[in-house]
Design a binder for these strands. Structure first.
Length: 480
RNA sequence: CGCGGGGUAGAGCAACGGUAGCUCGUCAGGCUCAUAACCUGAAGAUUGCCGGUUCGAUUCCGGCCCCCGCAACCA
C-alpha cells in the first residue's frame, strides 16, 4: 500500500537569541500533527530550521566581535538541540538559510519572479537615528522620534531597493481564501488576513544595499544588493524539498501533497499572504493550510519579558519535569489558537492534576491489578483507534480537543474501577474480576495509543508495560 | 471612524437561541487496586454596562466602558 504524502513545516526561528517557549510550542504542535499523520499511514516530511540572514544577526555578531558565520553556527546548535529536548520526530528535516542549496534556490526563485515581471527597483526612504547609528522603523519610534534619543532629529536616507509587486495579488489572494476557507486556521485569522488584503496591498521591499548590510543572499546579477531576509527565508519551505533541482520530492510533498505551515500570529501576513503571493508569482502551487498559534504570555496574561521576570525557558521546564510534561502542557493546557498564559505555578498544578494524579495514577492502579492477577491484555484487539472525535480534532489541528478526548477516557476508566471494584470482585469471583481487569487494561492501551503523537515516550512506556504485564518501577509522573 | 481578540463562579478556561459546563481551589461523604492518589455530592456566576429583536439571549443586533495584541519593509 503506498502511503499518502504529508508535508508540514514550522516557521524558521531567527537565530539572534536562544529558542524561546513560543517556538517550542509551535514545533511541538507541528510534531504532534506530524506524528499523528505518520501513525495513520502517511509518508511525512517534517521541516524546520533556522533563519540566519539579516541586519539584526549581522549587528549582533558584530557587536560580540564574532565572525557572522561562526556566530550563527554557534546558535544553530541550540536549535538543533531542541530535537532531543522536546522529543521531536527523529526524521525531522533541518534547513539553514545559509545552506548552499538554499542560497541557490532563493536566487533561482528571485530570477523566476523577476522574469515573470514581479520585481522592480525604486527609491526607498528610511529613517536614520544618528544617536543609535541605526535605521529605524515606524514601530521603533515615538512621536516621530527615536525612543532612545528623543532630542535628535531623524535623518531621512534615500536608497534604491528592489520591490516585489505584492499589490498585484490582492484579487488572487482573496480568491484563494474564498476557495479554501480552511486555508487559514482558525477561521478568525482567515477573516483577519482577508480584511487586510481587502484594504489594499502595497509592494514590499525585498533587497538591501550590500554596502550597508552584506549578510544576505546576493541578488542575481546585481552585486550591490542582497536579498531582504524575508524573501530569502520564505523560500526555505520549498528549498528544503530540494526545489528547484529535486522536483520529485517537491512534486510529491508540495505540489501533490497538502502542505501545512505552522506559525505564530505575528507571522500571519508573511505566511498567509506574502509567501502565497510569491508562490503565485513564480507559478507554484499554494500551501494548503496555514495554522496560526497564539502567543504564550507570562503570568497574568502579560507579555513575557525579562524585565517583568515572567519568562519561562523551555529547557528549564524540561529539566525539572521532563519532555512529555512540557508537551502535555503546550498541547492541552494552552489554547490551541489563542494566547495562553504560561507560569510555573500553572504548570505544576496541571502536571499534578492530570499527569501524576490522572494518567500516571491510572496507569499504576491498572497495571498493578493486571500484574497481581496475571491477566493478559488482548491489546491487539484495540490497536486501531476508532475515536472519531479524536481523529477529526487532530485533522483540524485542534490538539487540545484531541487531548480532552484522551482525558475523558482516563476519567471514565477511573470511574469504572470505582464503580465496578474489580480489586474486590477478583477475590470472590476470579473469573469475572479478571474479565473486568482485562477491560481496564484495554482501556489503558487505547489511552496509550491515543497519547502516541502527544506524549510519545510515555505512550511507549505504557504500551510496553501492558504487553509485558508489568507495573512501572517508579511512578510515570512523580507528584511535585 | 486603522485591524483583530477578549471581558462567564475565588483563579484559569468552555459552551450556546431554550434548565450556564470543565479544571484547580473550598466543604462533606465514599473507596482502598493506585503516586495522601480515585469516585460521589455540596457551596459558589444577576455570563462588563445600556438598549433592541424574540415566547425566550450568556448566545443575534446597536451603543458604551475596560483589557490585550497588531498597525506590513520589526526576520
Amino acid at each position: 500500500m503506498s502511503k499518502k504524502p504529508f508535508y508540514i513545516t514550522t516557521t524558521l526561528p531567527y537565530v539572534n537569541s536562544d529558542p524561546h517557549v513560543g517556538f517550542a510550542m509551535e514545533i511541538i504542535r507541528a510534531d504532534v500533527i506530524a506524528r499523528h499523520r505518520a501513525l495513520t499511514g502517511h509518508e511525512v516530511f517534517f521541516n524546520t530550521g533556522t533563519d540566519e540572514h539579516g541586519v539584526k544577526i549581522y549587528q549582533k555578531a558584530f557587536g560580540e566581535g564574532e565572525n557572522t558565520q561562526k556566530f550563527v553556527d554557534r546558535y544553530v546548535e541550540k536549535f538543533k538541540n531542541l530535537k532531543d529536548i522536546l522529543g521531536l520526530s527523529q526524521d525531522i528535516h533541518f534547513i539553514r538559510t545559509t545552506d548552499p542549496h538554499h542560497i541557490s534556490a532563493a536566487q533561482e526563485f528571485w530570477r523566476r519572479c523577476d522574469k515573470a515581471g514581479y520585481i522592480y527597483k525604486k527609491n526607498y526612504k528610511t529613517k536614520y537615528c544618528t544617536g543609535c547609528e541605526l535605521e529605524k522603523t515606524d514601530t521603533e519610534l515615538e512621536n516621530g522620534r527615536c525612543i532612545i534619543h528623543p532630542t535628535l532629529d531623524l535623518l531621512i536616507i534615500e536608497e534604491e531597493n528592489y520591490f516585489f509587486r505584492f499589490s498585484l495579488f490582492g484579487k488572487r489572494l482573496l480568491d484563494l481564501y474564498e476557495k479554501t476557507p480552511d486555508f487559514v486556521v482558525p477561521n478568525s485569522r482567515l477573516n483577519e488576513i482577508r480584511a487586510f488584503v481587502e484594504r489594499g496591498l502595497e509592494d514590499f521591499s525585498i533587497s538591501r544595499l550590500a554596502s550597508k548590510m552584506p549578510w544576505g543572499i546576493a541578488v542575481p546579477n546585481d552585486a550591490d544588493h542582497v536579498m531582504y531576509v524575508w524573501f530569502d527565508a520564505l523560500v526555505n519551505y520549498i528549498s528544503t524539498l530540494g526545489w528547484p533541482n529535486d522536483t520529485a520530492n517537491f512534486e510529491k510533498f508540495w505540489a501533490n501533497g497538502t502542505p501545512v505551515q505552522y506559525c505564530g500570529k505575528d507571522n500571519l501576513r508573511q505566511q498567509a499572504a506574502m509567501w502565497q503571493a510569491m508562490l503565485m508569482a513564480v507559478g507554484l502551487p499554494n500551501s494548503r493550510h496555514v495554522v496560526i498559534d497564539g502567543f504564550i504570555t507570562g503570568e497574568g496574561g502579560l507579555k513575557m519579558s525579562k524585565t517583568l521576570g515572567n519568562t519561562v525557558e523551555p529547557i528549564d521546564v524540561v529539566k525539572e519535569y521532563d519532555t512529555d510534561a512540557l508537551r502535555y502542557f503546550v498541547c492541552r493546557e494552552l489554547s490551541p489558537f489563542e494566547d495562553g498564559a504560561f507560569s510555573l505555578e500553572k504548570f505544576k498544578e496541571a502536571y499534578n492534576a492530570n499527569l501524576a494524579n490522572g494518567l500516571g495514577n491510572l496507569a499504576s492502579r491498572t497495571l498493578k491489578m493486571v500484574a497481581d492477577n496475571t491477566v493478559t491484555i488482548d491489546w491487539k484487539s484495540v490497536e486501531d483507534i476508532s475515536n472519531a472525535v479524536y481523529s477529526s480534532a487532530l485533522e483540524s489541528f485542534n490538539i487540545k480537543a484531541a487531548c480532552d478526548e484522551i482525558w475523558k477516557l482516563i476519567q471514565q476508566t477511573d470511574k469504572l474501577i470505582q464503580d465496578g471494584q474489580p480489586f474486590k470482585v477478583v477475590k470472590t469471583d476470579p473469573e469475572k474480576g479478571k474479565e473486568m481487569i482485562q477491560a481496564l487494561g484495554k482501556n489503558l492501551y487505547i489511552i496509550a495509543r491515543m497519547l502516541e503523537p502527544v506524549l510519545p515516550s510515555t505512550a511507549e512506556t505504557i504500551k510496553k508495560l501492558i504487553k509485558e504485564g508489568k507495573t512501572p518501577e517508579s511512578p510515570l509522573f512523580m507528584r511535585k
